[in-house]
Design a protein around this nucleic acid. Sequence first.
DNA 1: GTCTATATACAGATAGAC
DNA 2: GTCTATCTGTATATAGAC
Lengths: 181, 181
Amino acid sequence: MSRPPRARESVLDAFEALLVEDGERAATMDAAARRAGVSKGGLLYHFGSKEALVEGLIERLRVLSLEDIEQIRSAPDGPVAAFMRTSIMTGTALDRTIIALSRLAQNGHPAASDALRDLRLLWEDAMRSEAKDETALQLIMLVSDGLYFNNALTVGGVPGPVPTGADLDALIALVRDATSR
Amino acid sequence: MSRPPRARESVLDAFEALLVEDGERAATMDAAARRAGVSKGGLLYHFGSKEALVEGLIERLRVLSLEDIEQIRSAPDGPVAAFMRTSIMTGTALDRTIIALSRLAQNGHPAASDALRDLRLLWEDAMRSEAKDETALQLIMLVSDGLYFNNALTVGGVPGPVPTGADLDALIALVRDATSR
DNA sequence: GTCTATATACAGATAGAC
DNA sequence: GTCTATCTGTATATAGAC
């Protein structure tokens, strides 16, 4: 409904990009302001503290999560394939926000950990009807986690050893074969 | 052969513990010295820079990696089961060092990323003879990555949603069934 | 809404006493 | 081999002008 100011979104984009590309330590308010093309004071008008920046990212995650779950549930090639595909970093807005928040979570930010855990539960619920049992469900979830981990681990644009193209299709087929009812 | 001084190891232990328990930002030289019970100057005698501390952890990873690979190769219930078991954080020395280095890797430290990638390749080689094809091998590796990710993501002793006990046994059986020759 | 200037704290690192 | 004292840069945050 209420569209947030453009400057505000630019700052949030910059903060997120710094977290993803350079890590938590590099994601300072100063750097975010510079990258967004505003002054420190300008940033602090929109986000009165670093905590407020983090909360902005968490709110962004919630919005993108709902869209993602909706898309997974209605995917033509099935929820599992759609879920695994979206677990590969394709540069979607959701991917970037997840990686950004995982950096914060690993620096002791409980709100970020909670938000990621909640999203994982949403995904788990969306996959449950596809898996033959809870063990199969865990397999699906862990492969997805593994894909994210390899993307999250490398900083600076170096791609991890993540399957793509035909290799990813084969992996999806194997997982589906091992886990479907 | 040459046993390193005890104070040196204490400092490295403290630095590693801070990375694992509180995250990269909290792992300062000051905090490491305090936790190890030495002064800042004392720490700097053993490690002349923060970079030297990181290199100390990387060297520790190399030593522990070789032991781990040896143990996996000679495990009674097979390499895959042994590998997946060691992917659960059981508080082993290797687990802690891996998590610590993954925190550094995610803050743009290339040497840490390289060391972790090398270890992953060692594991991959140890698993290759067990997997029916490359896709199956990727499945094994990604489940292991997923287990680590869930352990790495939470800070402050909160355990992630990682299967244990009978659940882990069932998961191991499922993975082995889906991937073995 | 956006800016400059500044206060306060803490980071990594150096110098040199013991 | 371990300590204290100190230098320099940078982080978060506040105050207040425009």
